[in-house]
């Protein structure tokens, strides 16, 4: 019997009441994050990947939002907790890394002040000890000369250095789970490599689990153990990373993987997914991907359930035999 997962998300649904009707930003999302596991959530803009995470932490505060389902963290239901109850969790046992390191830090205080505030809040250390811990953390995330940098303001750091500060902050209270929302999207590729490398190293040191949200399949392949592919608020495929990139099953995942221009080969044309992302306000009645899918059938008017074996599930009506023929046909010409 494996140990219980650190995070268990069941049937998470987030909908917003709008004048045009209910907008389902997240629709029946379920996944687990094991101890020391890195789970990647991948999807394009509007797929609901950020809203899903924010709703778990009580950060979706819009009055017209309805959140249902269950989110168990260390066995305890955290969905619907009050701000006061969530306080020790947010920034304490769950650390957050946001996309834009400039907006995640306040420009009017030194980075040291911001780190010390958080450390004192969660670990109840005296001021001097908290400052010592802040300097230690800045050193750990690779900021040169942390003793003097601790008294600098965010604008005095480069983008990559700022993201390091944000990571230091997320780690400051030894979180069990780190949630990173597009942590490297705003960064250059050499800086991205530094940050991803750092995250992997620290994950090893701290034994924490990570949920990484990204639109970049490459980042997923580099980081994640398991992947959740989202489309229009719904999970369409969940699998181990290597299974997903080598044996993708859902037509949307095929499209996502095939559309990436590659470094190792030059093709005359990129394979594309036709059309534009669907509006979550008027989703088709069945499979949300059907209007853009090249293999749509009559059955697709009904919503396909997530099914498969324990390690690899997807939501599509295509039979195994059909998928094999389609993939063989697609892969042949290249």
């Amino acid at each position: 019997m494996p140990e219980a997962p650190l995070l268990q998300v069941r049937d998470l649904t987030v909908s917003f009441a709008t004048r045009q009707g209910a907008l389902r930003a997240v629709d029946g999302l379920s996944f687990d994050v094991g101890q020391k596991e890195i789970v990647g959530i991948v999807g394009e803009s509007g797929s609901g990947k950020s809203v899903a995470i924010y709703s778990m932490l009580g950060l979706v505060r819009e009055k017209n939002a309805t959140i249902t389902g269950s989110v168990l963290f260390e066995g305890r239901e955290i969905l619907g907790l009050s701000d006061k109850e969530l306080q020790p969790i947010r920034g304490g046992s769950i650390g957050m890394i946001f996309q834009d390191p400039m907006t995640a830090l306040t420009p009017v205080y030194t980075v040291g002040w911001q780190l010390v505030e958080q450390i004192r809040q969660h670990l109840h250390l005296p001021k001097a000890a908290a400052r010592q811990r802040a300097i230690e953390l800045l050193g750990q995330v690779g900021i040169p000369d942390p003793k003097s940098r601790v008294d600098r303001y965010p604008h005095e750091f480069s983008g990559g250095m700022r993201q390091r500060v944000v990571i230091a902050m997320a780690l400051s209270c030894n979180p069990r789970l780190l949630i990173a929302d597009e942590p490297t999207t705003a960064l250059d590729v050499t800086t991205q490599a530094q940050i991803l490398d750092l995250m992997l190293k620290l994950q090893d040191t701290y034994d924490s689990s990570i949920v990484i949200i990204t639109h970049d399949m490459g980042v997923i392949a580099e980081m994640a153990h398991r992947v959740v592919v989202m489309y229009a608020g719904r999970p369409v495929e969940i699998a181990r990373e290597l299974d997903l990139v080598r044996h993708p099953r859902h037509p949307y995942t095929w499209g996502l993987l095939d559309a990436v221009p590659r470094l190792d080969a030059k093709h005359d044309r990129l394979r594309t997914i036709r059309g534009n992302a669907v509006s979550p306000l008027n989703l088709p009645p069945g499979c949300a991907f059907a209007p853009r899918c090249d293999y749509v059938m009559d059955q697709c008017a009904q919503r396909p359930p997530l099914q498969g074996d324990a390690d690899h599930v997807d939501a599509c009506w295509l039979s195994d035999a059909q998928r094999v023929t389609i993939r063989q046909r697609v892969e042949q010409p290249s």
């Binding site: 050499t190 991205q192 490459g218 980042v219 392949a221 990139v245 590659r262 190792d264």
Partner: peptide
């Protein structure tokens, strides 16, 4: 170095 750090699908 640039080419070596582009995240790739190890497919």
């Amino acid at each position: 170095a640039l080419l070596s750090v582009v995240p790739e699908l190890n497919d």
